[in-house]
């Protein structure tokens, strides 16, 4: 197993390398570079050229790429052209919030999606089934930012049950260690800080969970339906096993393979797609920062972000592959 993981990690390097080339070229071909963002439409050609020279954008693209790679190897992503701060620093500060939000959303989606999908399959054709199929369709269709607004209006502004903005109440004065607020709270035993950060995650987490929840319900339902028709489930029933053993050991364990794959893909998507939700809830994750970076043509930030997302995808996929081998002995590696 250990060798398998190491081998998979080594395979990642060429993938990321290829990806970095593609992205580098693609980004630099976008119309309107940082000089337009800074100067607007009015700058003279001389001023534009000066800015480009300053940022090293006048050099051949290969040289630029070489410099980028050289820094990357030292985990240096360069300096943001808009905030003038280290991209790594910016990320370390903002990314944890987005990760927490993504984890929350996935926990909601998995925690509700698998039981609902299972129930829909078991009660096929009943109201429970129809309701979850219809519900998941709505979940897929409804724009996430719209849902975010509705949730905020109802549960935060009208009912006042949950906070409407931010990651944590600043008056708590929580200690920062990793910038994962919940984790920090647990590590410093500031339970109120951890709880407060958790409460701030609920509404944006719910909004963000809607699509993965819908997808997981559907995939679980289809997968469970298929497994329920398998002979070994009949064998399990013929043995008189209790419903819960049949469900856990024989049905769900087999039905989880496609679900695990989709969870991997959905997690990657969420990380990159949290932007709008974060904006609605004034949640200081990576989202708003990234939106700025796009409009500012902040190449170092964009490159760094895309590489990190790629890395996350790869890692999540690795976790999925490992979980595969744990679930199904037939794909187990030597």
């Amino acid at each position: 197993m250990f060798r398998f993981i190491v081998r998979r990690l080594l395979q990642v390097i060429p993938t990321l390398f290829g990806l970095s080339i593609l992205l580098f070229i693609w980004l630099h071909r976008l119309p309107g570079g940082p000089e337009t963002a800074i100067l607007g439409e009015r700058g003279t050609p001389e001023m534009r050229a000066a800015i480009r020279r300053n940022l090293g954008l006048d050099e051949p693209i290969l040289v630029q790429y070489g410099r980028f790679m050289k820094r990357l190897i030292q985990f240096d992503l360069g300096t943001s052209t808009s905030t003038k701060r280290e991209v790594t620093t910016e990320f370390l500060q903002r990314f944890p919030g987005t990760v927490e939000l993504t984890v929350m959303a996935m926990l909601i989606a998995i925690g509700l999606g698998i039981p609902l999908g299972y129930l829909a399959a078991r009660r096929r054709g009943t109201i429970v089934d129809h309701a979850s199929v219809a519900g998941s369709l709505i979940g897929i269709c409804i724009p996430v930012f719209f849902l975010a607004y509705v949730l905020k209006a109802v549960f935060a502004e009208n009912l006042g049950w949950l906070p409407s903005a931010g990651r944590q109440d600043p008056t708590i004065g929580a200690t920062r260690i990793t910038n994962f607020f919940v984790l920090d709270g647990l590590m410093t035993r500031e339970w109120d800080a951890a709880a407060d950060a958790l409460i701030h995650l609920i509404l944006p987490g719910l909004a963000l969970a809607s699509i993965p929840l819908a997808v997981i319900v559907r995939i679980t339902r289809a997968s469970v339906l298929e497994v329920l028709g398998e002979d070994f489930v009949r064998t399990a029933e013929a043995k008189g096993l209790t419903e819960s053993v049949v469900r856990r050991r024989h049905v769900l364990r087999n039905a989880m393979l496609p679900v695990a794959t989709s969870i991997g893909l959905l997690t990657g998507q969420l990380l990159s797609g949290a932007v709008l939700t974060e904006t609605v809830f004034a949640f200081s994750g990576i989202g708003a920062f990234l939106a700025d970076a796009i409009s500012q043509r902040d190449y170092p930030v964009l490159q760094g972000f895309i590489l990190i997302i790629a890395l996350v995808y790869v890692l999540v996929n690795l976790v999925v592959d490992v979980s595969y081998t744990l679930i199904d002995p037939r794909v187990r590696v030597r």
Partner: peptide
């Protein structure tokens, strides 16, 4: 108790 026709599909592939 009962035994069935196809022994491969009658056993759970992912459980020892």
């Amino acid at each position: 108790a009962m035994i069935f026709q196809d022994p491969l599909s009658s056993l759970n592939p992912v459980v020892p």
